[in-house]
Design a protein around this nucleic acid. Structure first.
Length: 165
DNA sequence: TAAGGGTTGACAC
DNA sequence: GTGTCAACCCTTA
């Protein structure tokens, strides 16, 4: 497995890639956490920024406020449950600059377990690529965000879709 | 098996 | 408008 750290202040992103595609995109509060985080994946994971040229290029544009489409990146969803994969897949369909709600997601999945949608999004290992920050509450409120609400706001700000509430 | 979670909608005030 | 509460259903311990 290959790992890399992408830093675009104030955001540090940890990227992890396996044989079949990206395995994780995670927000790191401190750059110093990077090596500790790689180590947590065992000896198989090594730092290899050069293998992420494509991803880093996309993130760079994204953080410059450009509408970037991450859809063609291949993701390794094997760590999620069937339900989580379905939620993540559905979330990926939300286009740049648009938002959806837990209810909308539930509807397209044929569910009424709104809370399990939120739970699945909370487990989302693909920050930004699976745009869980674009999922808001029914009344347009922010809802929650595993990496911190301030980051959710920041990302929505980049896309100019910050809700009023 | 029970508890809890990134919610929602209905109902009362 | 705001507060409370039950119902939703999946994951985790």
């Amino acid at each position: 497995m290959k790992a890399a750290l992408f830093s675009f202040p104030p955001v540090n992103l940890f990227l992890l890639k396996g044989e079949t595609g990206l395995r994780e995109v995670k927000y790191l509060k401190n750059k110093d956490d990077y090596s500790a985080y790689i180590n947590s994946f065992g000896p198989d994971a090594s730092s290899s920024p050069e293998s992420f040229a494509q991803e880093i290029e996309l993130f760079k544009e994204y953080f410059q406020g450009k509408p970037v489409d991450f859809k063609f990146l291949s993701l390794d969803l094997s760590r999620g449950t069937t339900f989580q994969k379905a939620v993540w897949k559905e979330t990926r369909k939300i286009p740049y600059g648009k938002t959806s709600s837990y209810r909308e997601l539930a509807k397209s999945l044929g569910h009424r377990g709104y809370r399990s949608i939120g739970q699945a999004l909370g487990k989302n290992p693909f920050l930004i690529i699976v745009p869980c920050h674009r999922v808001l509450g029914a009344d347009g409120s922010l809802g929650g965000f595993s990496a911190g609400l301030h980051l959710k706001k920041y990302l929505l700000g980049l896309e100019k879709t910050v809700p009023d509430k």
